[in-house]
Design a protein around this nucleic acid. Structure first.
Lengths: 156, 156
DNA sequence: GGCTTATGTAACATATATAGTTGCATGAAA
DNA sequence: TTTCATGCAACTATATATGTTACATAAGCC
């Protein structure tokens, strides 16, 4: 499987979006990720499909949140991105009639499903508001000077 | 991440190896996977490095187990294959100084580590003997006729 | 109306990891 | 010395995420 940074990038982007008035353009979001507006649109399209964000075309357009941070879980974002594998171990599909293969795949699948289930559970428990909250806590320990240098990419 | 079938294939192959006298050639093992001897050698090289199998060159050579099935766990095989990602979600590496990014990555990493830890635990608990045992149980419910057709690829 | 600014989308290129293939060197038994 | 096996380098194939370019479409502004 590839190196999937979409979940972490989107969580980052959505939290910054909630801290600004008005819409955010694909361009401004792309700056946070050091990437291209088209990459942002591709990721956001999945979120829009699931009602997490909305988009507005034309002059003054862009992206806006259509849910509150506390109602967006990491699982919501993960699922909006389409079901990826999550665990990168696959079962053999050769010799499916072989009882050894079946026993091996059964054992692997049970363990993998357990791990996936736990990860889904944790992702469902964590909302973007939770994450933003832990961020606010950290921020209160900084001086005013440090605050202005927090995330340059979110300020343009 | 890619579609990694090495763990399931090797578990399959090693169990069959334990059920036969003498060595198994890369060629005969490859037949179980419907693939090429070179693919088998590449996977087995990792196991040999960790003392799970040994190899013998030349005429009459091949691969043999150097551990008992009960002393080979799924985790042993996984680790012999080199540390792959296991969970296919990655953290953003852009804007590492941004507290939002740090909070997001912290939350993701904690959840992912929990899931990985559980998977490692399960893999460590399951030996190839356990899997072969569940296979033996199934086999006893079959007629003699069915037994001869169990896994054609292991009989050549 | 025409210009500007934005999303929407297709098409293509790049990066990475697993898998598959070919070729040749090396070692050991017949 | 022939045959049969592993050892290994180099190349191709495939899949997924990512990055890039180009163009169509929509909406506000002059």
């Amino acid at each position: 499987m590839g190196i999937d940074r979409r979940l972490s990038r989107l969580a980052h982007g959505l939290i910054h979006m909630s801290q600004h008035e008005g819409v955010a353009t694909s361009q401004s979001i792309a700056k946070m990720f050091g990437t291209n507006p088209v990459v942002v649109r591709r990721m956001m399209a999945g979120l829009r499909k699931d009602g997490i964000v909305g988009s507005q075309k034309g002059h003054g357009g862009g992206w806006m949140l259509t849910k509150k941070l506390e109602n967006i879980s990491l699982l919501d974002i993960h699922q909006a991105l389409g079901n990826s594998n999550l665990v990168s171990i696959n079962l053999t599909n050769e010799q499916p009639q072989c009882l050894v293969v079946q026993a091996v795949n059964d054992a692997l699948e049970k363990s993998i499903i357990e791990a996936k289930t736990l990860l889904y559970k944790r992702f469902a428990e964590i909302s973007l508001a939770d994450i933003a909250g832990s961020f606010e806590n950290k921020k209160q320990n900084l001086t005013e000077n440090q605050k202005t240098a927090l995330c340059p990419s979110s300020q343009s």
